[in-house]
Every structure is written in structure tokens, then in C-alpha cells.
Amino acid sequence: MYYLREMPDKLTITVISGSVDRLTGMAVLVSGAVAMDVDVEIFLQLWGIYAFRKDKIRENTHLSEFEELGEEVMKRMVEKNVKPWHEVLKEAKELGNVKIYACSTAMDIWGVKLEDLEMVDDVIGAAEWIEKAKESNISIFV
């Protein structure tokens, strides 16, 4: 394969959702990327920031879809040994090159600081995020 310029494979994920189902899907993709030696950068917006708050990350049970099936799907995930999304993400972060950024405006909305958030590396703005996303081969929105 030929590239116009050398750059590492990179996946960027913009996360506005704070729902456990969407975050679970996100975490699985991150660990898949890490296994494939793909760098990952994640940008947290509104509910994404809320879900990474140290005081919320473990107690959050909100689902974005099929709320009536929530109890059943949670039970199945436990049966099938699917780890909580934040544990999957933490493991991926330890194993690969995963950076997590928080949106400065959303931080302001929640009145939180970097040290109030789990696993988050830095606070950046939307323009800087777009610059990072421009350099990635895969970019998704959760």
C-alpha cells in the first residue's frame, strides 16, 4: 500500500451520548482499535462528560433505546461476561494509545474540572478537536 504521507492509523470518536448502551459499543470499538495498533482519540461533549464524572461513572444506568428491555439486557451482559464499558475502556487505555479529551464548554455547563473526570487526559475546544479529527482515517460519532 502507498500513502501520500506517513501517518499512523487513527480512530477519532466524538461522544455526546452518556448512555450505557452507546458507551458500551464505543468501548468495544476502542479496544478493537487498540488490538489492531490503531491510535484512538476521544472527544467528550455534553452527556459524554457527565458519564465520565467520577461520581457518576459507576452508578449510571441510563439507556438510549429500548428502556423496557434494560433490565434484561443488563442481566444478559453479566451472564455473557461483558465487562462494564468503563472497565473495557480503562483496559484499552492501558494497552494502547488512547487519549480522551473533554469539551471546555461542556465542562463549564457541568461546573466540573479535569480532576472530577475519570480517564480524561485534557480539556480542549471544538476547533482543536476538528484538527485532530482531520488527521484520522476513521471518525465516528456516538
Binding site: 468495544v28 479496544s31 478493537g32 487498540v34 455473557k80 461476561n81 461483558v82 494497552l95
Partner: peptide
Amino acid sequence: GTSCPGPLLEAK
């Protein structure tokens, strides 16, 4: 017993 992508991470 581990779910996707657990086995792949174990391999890595």
C-alpha cells in the same frame, strides 16, 4: 468465556 474483543486483547 471472555467476550469480543477480549480474546484478541489476550492475544495482543
